[in-house]
Design a binder for these strands. Structure first.
Lengths: 249, 249
DNA sequence: TTACATTTAAATGTCTGACAATTTTGGCGC
DNA sequence: GCGCCAAAATTGTCAGACATTTAAATGTAA
């Protein structure tokens, strides 16, 4: 982690990549302190601002953290599930919004992923998971609940379903994917608001998990997907009519 | 996107967040040009190096790209599947390696995710997908194939399986997850090298997809998972007793 | 000896000003 | 019209300086 052949790319990008490689390949371990900015500038034979730009690139990816003061500096970060989770969601959300992903595609992907964890969730769900799901269902049934709170509760319910599988890697991937699609999903819930049906399907999912009946859980998820899809299409159609009001019937 | 209340956080972090919010919330659209560094420095009332650090943070997340020269500057990036995919893989790989995720957990998550796409893949697979899978199986059967090439072919095979579902969002999440776990998986394939069994199971998966038999595909994937898990445990056990080799049957 | 206040040093955060490199635009001569 | 060149705008990089923060070291008093 020293050499820096004078390419045409940005020096700060090259330095960031060199340090990133050192971290990824395990040559630097968690909580290890990087040399100070001045020392790095010496090593790479660049100025301190250039080194700083490189460090900011790494900080943006949560690969390092910095601490001011004596014996401060840049330290290799332990990439926590929480940190990675946040990045995953931001990236996925932007990917959806910037590439005009259709509601159908997102919906299909979401429920396909969620069904991936149902067999494990049925096998391993604890009383805690079931209690969380029941509590969220109960909250969803309360009349005065705002749309925002309903959506939040919906996320919490599905998050509990995913966590019930008892596999943190699965939780990371699935919960990130589900949460990233929430803005799209919210659009539906806000407009079509059919809480009774959703609440009923949630109850069926919780029942299936309690009974450890994976088939029933998957069936209920299929129905929830179909229902969501129908609502989504209605909303889309209404949108289309509003912006281009052509009577087609 | 102007104000910057004098907090205690880094100015460059605050500025980066302000611009990121503007992009995420759609106030800046794809390919739109940001003000020049000097103008941003004026707007936020900071110096140019501070602005530059903020821009580097955003560049590290592929949110913007920069171009030198007249009428150059920073532009909002369209977050492509490829770009997001790379970030997803890097983050997930680090998450696995830094948190000592067990092989069992990773393996379980991987195949659970992969099974999530089999029904869709069976329904939608095209001749192209089948041809790719057959070609990779054929390559895997060749005797002189290096371990590296075998692993690459393995990834390509599973990538084709995922892509066969015809859902780019699903492909993004699944392929990213699968590829991030490849280092762990490689450790197994390199050591235990039982290519015939794997090749046979791959053939069964391809056959099932061709016959559009989702159940058969899932069964084969379950068997592949069980087999991989067995191999993994053997390798782990061998590792554990590498100093005292006890023959256990 | 212990507890607390002060100093000190190391490091990051920020600023100023300058120059280099690059790329588009427009003008000039032919 | 075409090719060449200069100008302008913008990012990339550098050097040096000062401000701020923080932990350790030191000094001081009970």
């Amino acid at each position: 982690m020293k050499i820096d052949p004078s390419n045409k790319a940005d020096l700060s990008a090259q330095i960031a990549e060199a340090i990133r490689d050192a971290i990824v390949e395990g040559r630097m371990i968690v909580d290890e302190r990087l040399p100070s900015e001045a020392e790095l500038a010496d090593q790479f034979e660049v100025s301190r601002p250039t080194v700083r730009e490189a460090l900011k690139r790494l900080a943006a990816q949560s690969l390092i953290r910095t601490q001011r003061g004596a014996f401060g500096g840049a330290f290799v970060n332990r990439l926590s599930y929480e940190g990675a989770y946040g990045q995953h969601i931001t990236t996925s959300t932007l990917l959806l919004s910037m590439n005009a992903v259709s509601f159908e595609t997102a919906c299909e992907a979401r429920y396909a992923l969620e069904r991936a964890c149902t067999p494990l969730a049925c096998a391993r769900r604890t009383a805690d998971h079931l209690a969380t799901m029941r509590a969220e269902i109960h909250r969803q049934a309360q009349p005065g609940l705002s749309d925002e709170s309903f959506c939040a509760s919906d996320v919490a319910f599905h998050r509990a379903l995913v966590d019930a599988a008892g596999n943190p890697v699965l939780s990371y991937h699935l919960a990130g994917a589900v949460e990233a699609m929430q803005p799209l999903m919210n659009m539906i819930t806000f407009t079509a608001r059919s809480r009774e049906v959703i609440e009923h399907l949630h109850t069926r999912i919780a029942d299936a998990l309690q009974a450890q009946d994976a088939t029933a859980a998957e069936t209920a998820l299929h129905e929830l997907e179909a229902y969501t899809l129908t609502l989504g299409r209605d909303v889309m159609a209404a949108h289309a009519r509003k912006s281009a009001p052509v009577s087609s019937g």
